[in-house]
């Protein structure tokens, strides 16, 4: 939590989080990250830097991968928010485990959310998932443990589902 984001008067906001409609009374600039982690106790979304550099707080808003630390609650009003706790991550989770892509685990939720966003974009746009594509998609998610090889392989495996 950062003071300035919470300095204005609370307003009522409606969000759909992981399929459930939630009505909250929060300061409009409160970071979506704090809304998720503190108000909704969805702590799977991690804070690594608070300034949009590490990708640990990646969530989906209306299907797009965005950073919860740079999203004001009012900017997400009425949107569909999906976090790592939500449905639809089964394949990516399995691939991450099988490839040894999770070590300390702090970047893992953000990586998995980003992987899903990329996999869905590949399917939607009919783009063949490749290692280079995965590297470009995951370039905003920092990992200090793995050297990325296992993560990229897990992402490609995830996205290849449904491709011949």
């Amino acid at each position: 939590m950062k003071p300035i984001f919470d300095e204005s008067d609370p307003v009522e906001l409606r969000l759909c989080v992981n399929g459930a409609v939630r009505t909250l009374c929060v300061p409009p600039l409160r970071r979506l990250l704090d809304v998720l982690r503190e108000d909704l106790r969805l702590t799977g979304t991690k804070e690594g830097c608070g300034e949009g550099e590490c990708g640990a707080c990646t969530v989906l808003i209306d299907g797009q991968a965005v950073l919860a630390c740079l999203t004001a609650a009012c900017s997400a009003e009425g949107s569909e928010v999906v976090t790592i706790e939500g449905p639809g991550f089964e394949r990516a989770r399995r691939e991450f485990l099988e490839h040894g892509a999770a070590q300390c685990g702090i970047c893992t939720p953000g990586m998995i959310v980003m992987t899903r966003a990329w996999a869905e974009a590949c399917r939607r746009d009919g783009i063949e998932p490749t290692e280079d594509g995965a590297r470009a998609a995951l370039a905003g998610n920092l990992c200090r443990c793995t050297g990325y090889g296992a993560i990229v392989a897990a992402a490609v495996s995830t996205a290849r589902e449904g491709f011949p």
Partner: peptide, 23 residues
């Protein structure tokens, strides 16, 4: 032979509790 990480499932599901997650 590679064993499944005991700490793996909680990490990929966002359930692992780090200090900032402790209520």
């Amino acid at each position: 032979r590679d064993l499944a990480r005991p700490d793996g499932p909680a990490k990929v599901e966002g359930r692992a509790v780090y200090v900032a997650d402790l209520d």
